[in-house]
Design a protein around this nucleic acid. Sequence first.
DNA 1: CTCCTATCCTGCGAGC
DNA 2: TGCTCGCAGGATAGGA
Length: 272
Amino acid sequence: MPELPEVEIVCRNLSEIMPVGERIESWRYFRKDLRYPFPKSKMQRLIGAGLRAIRRRAKYILFDFGEYTLISHLGMTGAWRREQKGWIRQKHDHLCFETVNSGVFVFQDPRRFGFIEVIRSKDLAERFSGLGLEPLAGDADFANLTQSFLRLNSPIKSAIMNQKLLVGVGNIYASEILYRVGLNPLKKCSDIEPAQYRQVWRECVKTLTKAIQRGGSTIENYRNAKGEAGSFQSEFFVYGREGEACRKCHTEIVSQVLSGRSTFWCPSCQKK
DNA sequence: CTCCTATCCTGCGAGC
DNA sequence: TGCTCGCAGGATAGGA
């Protein structure tokens, strides 16, 4: 489900409804695992600790409780929502924690590709050491990223989705970003000029930023932690539009599976 | 090392 | 109506 903009929105509104200093009173589990077993003993360590911040790294949500950090990944269909005491369990609600003053936070995830982790905060850097460049970080070193890409033989679309190189871009935004640059998604990374890479990074930042301003994209069931849908899907140029007319030149949008993922582009606008 | 495939899981729409 | 098939926003282990 969620790519960088959606995870960013979830983090922002979780921060609004769960203030700094808030404490977890108790956990409840409705099954014993999601993608990985719940780290129950470590989750107990969070009880009573004051929340310092909720932030995003790549597509991970980090609840910083000082000595320990709760890591939540939404996978394809994961969602947090807030409930009040006496709430009624919905299908695919897998766990919840109750806070002292802010209600109950419930994690729902039909496909169960999401997961929950608790680690010592001092181990965060190592836990995420394999992650690539954070595109919206002020100090993002895109020149260095270009040098990495110039050495790759893979198609550009696969590469910008590779979280070891660049984080946050998933299957939807990959197609959208390349449309905005005019690059064919199948083009080999080593065949792309440095000047074109500068455009790729610029459109990447612009597209992700705009998507955040629109509250993310809601395809089927994405909702932020307040239950609100995003609206950026109305600005898609190519994703999910196979057979429809290009918004600029009216050529039919085409689609092809690349590395197992549906890929959309305009054969006329994306000839670079 | 690099790249691709299969896999985890449930739900939904298309097609018969 | 009801069945099967294919596909869905992610990440990763393992094979070529």
